[in-house]
Design a protein around this nucleic acid. Structure first.
Length: 587
RNA sequence: CGGGGUAUGGCGCAGCGUGGUAGCGCGUCCGCUUUGGGAGCGGAAGGCCCCCGGUUCGAAUCCGGGUACCCCGACCA
């Protein structure tokens, strides 16, 4: 394939677009790979679409390699299946809804679990048909509250989504492992660094779940990894290292003390050290138990107050809390809410008012570090008073635990105890064991060996195809422009003919033809009357892995071959150039 | 949905304070010169100055009300 720049539908921009902030957005627009069509919606131009197709090809090949079969659903879907699973409501404003001329409800598919499940139900009815993995590469629609960063997070995007169907958990595990392996190979072939992290399964429901994140400063996901072992998890999914229960036989009895003017942890700690100083060590925020109130709003609109107890030196992480209570939404506890629960004294809330037996009856969940036998200073439930030596398990019993406290760098790894560190990443893929949520909801059943009806268990596996284009650029660019990995580059070689000498253009055209014959993709800058500087700048911006210049070296019979990533250049005899490039491009 | 910013040819921006013929750079087109690091000179095309209303003889500019976009926080491939 030869792309000729004299006729290529392309316009590169000299200046950065003003509305683009992150590198991938800036460079993809400036280099003429994409154009914005509407908020969060982008058009692909010839070179950009070629990159996109290359990503798609790699993804598809790895799917085929694990025996998954490709299907293709409509993007425009009827309401009914989504009504059955509750997602017509649960998806809320994120769902693009529309009506046909008769007033019937439709949606633009944000994801296709329902359709896949129904299709299998439609055609299959025996355990002999399973296992089955089917996938599609589809345009998805989500009316995001805030689309941003160009195609990194659009309202229309392309996802490869696959689904596995197995009769039992062991089969699901095999399908899951196969997809996980395929994603590993896909990321590697796409030249993307990646980290696999434990994840929450989110609105899809289900259990085991891992995400493939591409580390990137502009990523939207925060994850932690252990500096000592290979543990890594999305911050939402981190399970803290909780100590075992402690004996409390010789613990002193709890005693309420006057602590006037101490509604915050900071003022409380100061007061403790001033009035109740200890010899062995001073009081710190970690000695206190902070009780935070929120309101949960369920998809059906019902509201429930919830009290969350965390060690006083930690904040409640809103993202972690939100992930735990999903699909309910967390809202702040208002003054009106306090007024509705007069037994709660703001700043002095203690377990006495909370939990099943508490005076307020509000459900009380605590951080896993609040195990039986731990001793705390916490609110006594009346203004200006706290309880000391309150022992969990002896003096109060929470209704459960919750992973809502913030994770900090240096926290112990739940696997090996090493120090955790946090980083940001772009979510590229998500694999999880869905279980029977959709097969049950939609009535997918097959007959097993003994003629009994069983409900297959499902896995769900998404990979962001269009997002990958942007993620690759995030990780592979420099001050001059994009640096495409060879696997997705629109062409292997950017061939630049400089000057006005006819011989140069003839030699370059001949070399382009030779390359094409050798299966090397060429982007040939054959524009006459364009200065060398412009051509070099464009070549660097566009980012083909190899830049070949035919110009002033031609009188000596050589062309210059430059590696875009390293900048290393070498002169190669024109006669050997095609073979040299073939060795580079198809090693 | 909360906070901040911006809307002026394809792109980047000035002009608005103190109303009076809509400008600059890049890009595009024509001509001549130039050709290894975003060339020079001369000519040209291309604008509901975000929208609606108001003030005024006259509004890009002043007033009122909308809308959109971008960035930062709550949601996800």
């Amino acid at each position: 394939m030869i792309w000729r720049m004299s006729t290529l539908f392309l316009r590169t921009l000299r200046d950065d677009p003003a509305d683009a902030e992150v590198p991938s957005h800036r460079l993809l627009v400036r280099a003429g790979y994409v154009r914005r069509a509407a908020p969060g919606i982008y058009s692909w131009l010839p070179l950009g679409y070629e990159v996109y197709r290359n990503v798609e090809r790699v993804v598809r090949e790895e799917m085929h390699a694990i025996g998954a079969q490709e299907v293709h659903f409509p993007a425009l879907l009827p309401r009914e299946p989504y009504e059955v699973t509750g997602r017509w409501t649960e998806y809320g404003d994120t769902l693009f809804r529309l009506e046909d001329r008769k007033g019937a409800d439709y949606l633009l598919g944000p994801t296709h679990e329902e359709m896949f499940t129904l299709l299998v139900k439609d055609l299959y009815s025996s355990y002999k048909d399973l296992p089955l993995s089917i996938f599609q590469v589809q345009t998805k629609y989500r009316d995001e509250a805030r689309p941003r960063a160009g195609i990194l997070r659009g309202r229309e995007f392309v996802m490869k989504d696959s689904y596995s169907f197995d009769v039992d958990d062991a089969g699901l595990q095999r399908s899951y492992d196969a997809h996980r392996g395929a994603y590993v190979r896909t990321c590697e072939r796409l030249g993307m660094p990646y980290v696999v992290v434990a994840a929450m399964s989110g609105a899809m429901g289900g259990s085991a779940s891992e995400e493939f994140l591409v580390p990137a400063v502009h990523g939207e996901d925060t994850y932690v990894r252990c500096t000592a072992c290979d543990y890594a998890a999305n911050v939402e999914a981190v399970r803290v290292a909780a100590p075992g229960p402690l004996p409390w036989d010789d613990a002193p009895a709890a005693h309420a003390e006057q602590t006037p003017g101490t509604p915050t942890i900071e003022t409380l700690v100061d007061h403790l050290n001033a009035a109740f100083g200890r010899e062995d060590r001073s009081w710190t925020a970690a000695d206190t138990l902070k009780n935070v109130l929120v309101t949960l709003v369920r998809p059906d609109g019902t509201r429930e107050p919830l009290a969350v107890g965390v060690p006083g030196d930690r904040d409640v992480d809103e993202k972690r809390l939100a992930a735990q209570v999903e699909p309910a939404v967390v809202e702040p506890f208002t003054e009106a809410d306090f007024a509705a629960h007069p037994t709660l004294t703001k700043g002095y809330i203690g377990p006495g008012a909370l939990g099943e037996k508490g005076t307020s009856g509000i459900r009380y969940v605590v951080d896993p570090r609040v195990v039986g036998g731990t001793r705390w200073v916490t609110g006594a439930g009346v203004d200006g008073s706290h309880v000391l030596d309150l022992v969990a398990g002896r003096d109060f019993t929470p209704d459960g635990t919750i992973e809502a406290a913030g994770i900090r760098d240096g926290d112990p790894c739940p696997v090996c105890g090493g120090a955790l560190e946090s980083a940001r990443g772009i979510e590229m893929g998500h694999v999880f064991q869905l279980g029977r949520k959709y097969s049950e909801a939609l009535g997918l059943q097959v007959l097993d060996e003994s003629g009994r009806l069983v409900t297959p268990t499902m896995g769900s596996y998404g990979f962001g195809v269009s997002r990958a284009v942007a993620a690759i650029v995030e990780n592979s660019h420099d001050d001059l422009g994009i640096v495409w990995p060879r696997s997705v580059a629109p062409a292997d070689v950017h061939l630049v003919a400089t000057g006005k000498d006819v011989a140069v253009f003839e030699a370059a055209a001949a070399l382009a033809a030779e390359c094409e014959a050798a299966g090397i993709g060429v982007l040939y800058d054959d524009r006459p009357k364009v200065s060398p500087g412009v051509k070099f700048k464009d070549a660097e911006l566009l980012g083909m892995p190899t830049i070949v210049t035919v110009g002033r070296g031609l009188v000596d019979g050589v062309v210059e071959v430059r590696d875009r990533a390293t900048g290393v250049r070498e002169d190669v005899p024109l006669a050997d150039a095609a073979a040299h490039l073939a060795a580079l491009c198809h090693p």
